[in-house]
Design a protein around this nucleic acid. Sequence first.
DNA 1: ACTCTTTCGGGAACAGTGTTCGCGAACAAT
DNA 2: ATTGTTCGCGAACACTGTTCCCGAAAGAGT
Lengths: 219, 219
Amino acid sequence: METVPVWLRERRTGVGRPAERSRAEVTAAAIALADREGLAAVSMRRVAAELGTGPASLYRYVDSRDDLLDLMTDEMATEYRLPEPGGPWLPALLEVYRQGRAVMLRHPWLPELLLTRSALGPHSTELLEHVLAILAAHPAGAGRKLEAFAVMTTLTAALTLNELNASSGAPQRQGAYLAHAIAAGRHPHLTAALAGGPPTPAPRFEDTVSRVLTGLLGE
Amino acid sequence: METVPVWLRERRTGVGRPAERSRAEVTAAAIALADREGLAAVSMRRVAAELGTGPASLYRYVDSRDDLLDLMTDEMATEYRLPEPGGPWLPALLEVYRQGRAVMLRHPWLPELLLTRSALGPHSTELLEHVLAILAAHPAGAGRKLEAFAVMTTLTAALTLNELNASSGAPQRQGAYLAHAIAAGRHPHLTAALAGGPPTPAPRFEDTVSRVLTGLLGE
DNA sequence: ACTCTTTCGGGAACAGTGTTCGCGAACAAT
DNA sequence: ATTGTTCGCGAACACTGTTCCCGAAAGAGT
């Protein structure tokens, strides 16, 4: 029962044969592979091949595939370019999540990882610290602020995942059954909602985010 | 490229040798197995063993494991016991997601499936119809209502998943690094937020949900 | 210069996975 | 009884994450 997260499991250096690669290198290779061929392609063998080594070598840098996924996720938090906290909190937080969406669009495998595992690494912690700084003057309690951070991460991932699914082949799969359900005629409200072809103007990302933010943190 | 969802791929009956089992039976076996041993235990071989057959037989009822997971997910929508729509929308929706959480606590494998795949089957569609009925008098556009449904499903799943992880061995994993980050001293706001031991009173599920709901749908 | 100790690299193997093939059996219709 | 069609499913294929283990490589101590 290993309860220590990856980031606290540093190897001691200076003794024995030096490593030919680094944890960062392995992470970068996995990210490149995921960007190119999707998360399903990130197997230990494929990542190893990416680095020109055998699969067993990766276990010198990472304890398991799950560890590697956590490292990939946390690494994404380095792509934010955030201005110094200051000014009203709402536009500042909006900028944070706008950038979050941009990162996820660049790395389409990210939302799934963010939604299914809840690993807080060093870089994600930096991001949390930044959000808390933005909210420093906000009167809400610490519990509500932490909750807002968690909910907004989830919300951003969920909205972006929807966007990504919509722009790939998925709508046929999803829409096919809905069309059938409407044709069957037993869903009056659904029929009414989808009357005008596609789901009618989908709300803009920033619009939804700022609505939920004001809901979570008040005014 | 098969874009037709499972639910529209019914087999024709009355010709040839009759099937010994049914799609519903296979789904039920998979659900029972997932309830008992978790989602990872739901392999084609284990499900087949549950039914006393060989793994290849399952492919008479289901095109792939993904199909089976979609069937399991949609089946969960039958566990809702919802009152007739009527009255103010907020408490009515709150009841929907309170029940959603209850279903997920009963079937701890559900959140992960809801978060990673977005399959709308017959029973989920019934639930969507119910939510739209609750919102029938609401002035928001159809796009916003549909988005609210998608977002709330995801959010409920994410929150419940967090709850489930927190009540198992996971909090150590998450808390361990946070403690380390605070000890390092470079995160003043984070340190302040976590000053009083645990994250201060964690907001209740219904509280969070109703805040997000009013954010999404106004009022 | 030599050993000692420690770590790294990675081939081979294990236990498992999803899925396909193909054949014999079982039924409905003719 | 024959034909058409479906079902059951053993066997096999190409993968997966992970562990074992051994030889190689480097620094430390003498």
